[in-house]
Measured scan of single mutants.
Amino acid sequence: MDTYKLILNGKTLKGETTTEAVDAATAEKVFKHYANEHGVHGHWTYDPETKTFTSTE
C-alpha cells in the first residue's frame, strides 16, 4: 500500500488529508467521497510523481 495525499482548495473548506491505498484509482474514490461529504465539488488533478490529488473550486 502507498500513501496518497489530497489538497482541498474549496470555497468553504481548505486543507489536506492522506489515505493508504493499493493504487491511485482507489485513493481517488476515497478522496472524492471525502470531498463530496464536505461539500467540495471542484476540478480534480493528480500528480503521479508525488501521489497528490488536488481539488479546486
Results as ranks from 00 to 15, higher is better:
K32H: 09
T56V: 09
Y4V: 02
D23R: 02
Y46A: 00
D47R: 03
G39F: 06
E20N: 10
D2W: 12
V40I: 11
T56G: 05
G39L: 05
T17Q: 08
T26I: 07
I7Q: 04
F53Y: 05
G42Y: 05
P48D: 08
G10I: 05
Y4R: 02
H33N: 13
L6Y: 03
T45L: 06
A21Y: 01
L8I: 12
A24Y: 13
K51C: 04
T17A: 11
E28A: 10
N9M: 11
A27E: 00
T52C: 04
K5A: 04
Y46S: 00
D23I: 02
M1Y: 13
F31W: 00
E37D: 09
L13A: 09
V40D: 04
V40K: 03
E37Q: 13
K11F: 14
N36V: 12
H38Y: 10
E57A: 05
H38D: 02
K51S: 03
G15R: 14
V40T: 04
L8Y: 11
Y4L: 03
E49Q: 12
Y34R: 02
F31T: 00
T18R: 07
K5L: 07
M1R: 10
N9R: 11
T12R: 09
I7W: 03
E28P: 00
T56A: 07
A27L: 01
A24Q: 09
E20H: 10
E28Q: 09
T52R: 02
G39N: 10
T56Q: 08
T54F: 10
K32C: 08
D23F: 02
I7H: 04
E37G: 07
K14Y: 13
K51T: 02
G42M: 06
D2L: 12
M1L: 13
K51A: 03
T12I: 10
H43I: 15
W44R: 00
A24I: 08
L8K: 00
A24L: 09
N36T: 13
D23C: 04
G10Y: 12
T52N: 01
E20W: 12
H38N: 10
T52Y: 02
W44N: 01
Y34I: 07
T54G: 03
D2E: 14
Y46T: 00
A35K: 01
T45E: 11
S55A: 15
G42P: 04
I7E: 04
L6M: 04
Y34H: 04
H33G: 09
V22H: 11
H41V: 13
A35E: 06
V22A: 13
E37R: 10
L13D: 05
T50F: 06
L8N: 00
G42W: 14
K5Y: 14
A21P: 01
G10R: 03
E57L: 05
T19C: 15
E20G: 04
G10T: 09
M1G: 09
T19V: 14
T17K: 09
A24W: 13
P48H: 08
E20L: 15
Y34L: 06
H38W: 10
F31G: 00
N9V: 13
K51V: 01
A25H: 09
N36E: 15
A21L: 01
D47I: 05
A24M: 11
T19S: 04
Y34P: 01
K29F: 08
G10H: 13
A25I: 11
N9T: 08
E57F: 06
T19R: 04
N36C: 13
Y46C: 01
G39R: 05
G42S: 05
V40A: 05
K11N: 11
V22Q: 11
E57D: 07
K11I: 15
E49R: 11
H33C: 10
I7G: 01
N9E: 09
K51H: 07
T12F: 14
T3C: 13
F31E: 00
P48R: 07
H38P: 01
E57S: 05
W44A: 01
L6N: 02
E57G: 04
E16V: 13
T50V: 06
A21G: 03
A25Y: 10
T3M: 09
Y46I: 01
E57R: 03
G39T: 03
L6Q: 01
Y34D: 01
